[in-house]
């Protein structure tokens, strides 16, 4: 899909668009396509701005192009709104320069943001951390501070499209309802997932009553990291919703995102205390029981998620060998879930 784009035409269109938006001649050059999943296209480019009042400038930018309506979790307006909310709160994210909801230009809406340096490939991050003892703990504290910033945004300040349920509903109930529905749709019985859902339903955490903005998919793989700066940016805001802040902290610590570096709970990068220290120092409130509950929920969520990928392959929605293989990875999450349930039952 994305690799069939005509980059020459897109360069012209981007130049025209920015020249119009900024009121001076701008040229888009050095376009490079990157892939961020099947749904959206990202193109890196440089915008040459020779008559910038502050002097000739080359801006390093990214354009994110949406697929045709209907295939997105939420649209360009919601995504750029939450990116701007996160930036205003002090979280490291790309800066949004331009948003175009008019689909006639590239055939699809798009937004243009700053290009943040760094690497997001999990294996490369594990290598960086192995090469420098101080880097992992540093990233953990930075992630904690970033979460505290994201979670400072109350649910009532978020756009309608990211609100899940009413702001008076318990986030744990909302998440359980979503997973219950997804479990019913699987192609085969999954008694381990049923046992997990049963435990989660009967042991829900205390709830303070205030929904906050939650990213919901911060993990090793969705963060940009550099060896000298540590955490540079948090990517992929498509799943942003309102809820319990512990959902974010716990999802990052699900075993899958350690990519084999199992002894470091936070994405294989550092120990939990570094994340929690960073969170609390930046004003976040951490509750270990809520964290444990959301980690068990996250483990169930990703187990069901893998089974759903296999379902999409098997029912023909998205035939793909990696999606098929996901069906045989679900058992890893079943194992983790059973072990977490054992530990949680022993602790109560």
């Amino acid at each position: 899909m994305t690799h069939l784009r005509d980059l020459g035409r897109i360069a012209e269109d981007l130049g025209d668009y920015l020249s119009g938006a900024w009121g001076r001649p701008v040229t888009a050059v050095r376009l490079v396509e990157t892939s961020v999943g099947a749904r959206r296209g990202n193109i890196l480019f440089d915008a040459e701005d020779p008559t910038n009042p502050a002097g000739p400038t080359t801006h390093e930018l990214v354009v994110t192009i949406y697929p045709p309506a209907g295939a997105v979790l939420f649209g360009v307006e919601s995504e750029t709104t939450v990116l701007r909310l996160a930036e205003a709160a002090g979280a490291p994210v790309a800066h949004v320069y331009e948003v175009c909801t008019d689909p006639t230009r590239f055939g699809e809406p798009f937004f243009i943001s700053s290009r943040v340096r760094g690497d997001s490939l999990p294996r490369n991050l594990l290598r960086m951390v192995a090469a420098d003892d101080t880097l992992g703990p540093r990233i953990g504290r930075q992630l904690g501070a970033a979460f505290a910033a994201i979670h400072r945004t109350p649910g009532s300040a978020t756009p309608e499209a990211v609100r899940r349920g009413a702001l008076t509903d318990r986030p744990s109930e909302i998440s359980l309802a979503v997973l219950g529905e997804q479990l019913d749709e699987l192609l085969q019985p999954a008694p381990v997932f049923a046992l997990g859902l049963r435990w989660l339903t009967r042991n829900q955490p205390d709830w303070t009553g205030e929904h906050v903005m939650v990213h919901s998919d911060v993990r090793n793989g969705n963060i940009l990291v550099s060896p000298d700066g540590g955490l540079e940016a948090i990517l992929d805001w498509e799943g942003c919703h309102t809820g319990d802040p512990h959902e974010d902290l716990a999802w990052l610590c699900v075993r899958t995102w350690r990519f084999g570096n199992d002894h470091l709970e936070v994405g294989g990068l550092c120990e939990r205390r570094h994340l929690v220290d960073g969170y609390e120092e930046a004003g976040g409130r951490f509750d270990p029981d809520a964290f444990t509950w959301w980690k068990i929920l996250g483990t169930l969520r990703w187990g069901i998620g893998l089974s759903r990928q296999a379902t999409q392959h098997l029912n023909g929605t998205y035939r793909n060998i990696a999606m098929a293989a996901s069906g045989r990875r679900a058992v890893e999450l079943e194992y983790d879930l059973l072990r977490l349930l054992q530990a949680a039952s022993a602790a109560r």
């Binding site: 381990v192 075993r255 199992d262 002894h263 709970e265 980690k295 045989r328 990875r329 058992v331 890893e332 079943e334 194992y335 059973l338 072990r339 977490l340 530990a343 602790a347």
Partner: peptide
């Protein structure tokens, strides 16, 4: 689950659970 792991991902259950707790 152990029997499925032996087919799909041998060794995944050789793992120190203490870190989670």
């Amino acid at each position: 689950t152990g029997a499925k792991l032996a087919v799909n991902k041998p060794g995944y259950d050789r793992y120190d659970m203490a870190i989670e707790v």
